[in-house]
């Protein structure tokens, strides 16, 4: 494998999110906070969501991990902001399918930067890095719904 193959995994846009993460931090008025880690490798995310009337009004994250897990968290928070809960969940399902190698070009949502993570599906050992933030989001939404 050459650097070309590595480029499938580490696209420029991923590195940009890793180096300049969007929505890094905490919220003062969050309605739900979820801690999630990847027990096999030590990656950790703390996700804060502000959910109001079924809409994700704000999202921020803290955590430590590799370029894939942290860029994915950055992209995820960007993507779900302003979305309805079921839209966000649906995006998470689409993302899971993408990680299984399914083509996502025909979907209803514009995945934006997230599409850059498509190459991760070719690196099975790294899929769990990419899905960590999305799993945390699903858990956070479920916890928020339970509270209400």
């Amino acid at each position: 494998m050459s650097f070309n193959n590595l480029d499938t995994l580490y696209r420029q846009v991923i590195m940009d999110h890793y180096k300049n993460p969007r929505n890094r931090g905490t919220l003062d008025n969050e309605s739900v906070t979820i801690d999630m880690n990847n027990p096999t490798c030590g990656d950790r995310i703390e996700l804060h969501l502000q959910i109001k009337d079924g809409i994700v009004e704000d999202a921020k994250f803290e955590g430590e991990g590799c370029s894939i897990s942290m860029s994915s968290a950055s992209m995820m928070t960007q993507a779900i902001k302003g979305k309805q809960i079921d839209e966000a969940i649906n995006m998470s399902h689409i993302f899971s399918n993408m990680m299984l190698g399914e083509d996502v070009e025909e979907v209803d949502f514009d995945l934006g930067d997230i599409e850059a993570l498509q190459g991760v599906s070719k690196f099975p050992a790294r899929i769990k890095c990419a899905t960590l933030a999305w799993k945390a989001m699903e858990k956070a939404v479920a916890a928020d719904e339970k509270e209400e």
């Binding site: 494998m1 050459s2 590595l6 995994l9 096999t40 490798c41 030590g42 990656d43 050992a125 790294r126």
Partner: peptide
């Protein structure tokens, strides 16, 4: 460079190393 990323680059070169917390949190 995060160790997972190190391990992925090394793997691309055919080199198998371990990355993570090594069951010693």
């Amino acid at each position: 460079v995060h160790p997972h990323d190190t391990a992925t680059v090394l793997d691309a070169e055919g080199i198998a190393v371990r990355a993570g917390h090594h069951c010693a949190q």
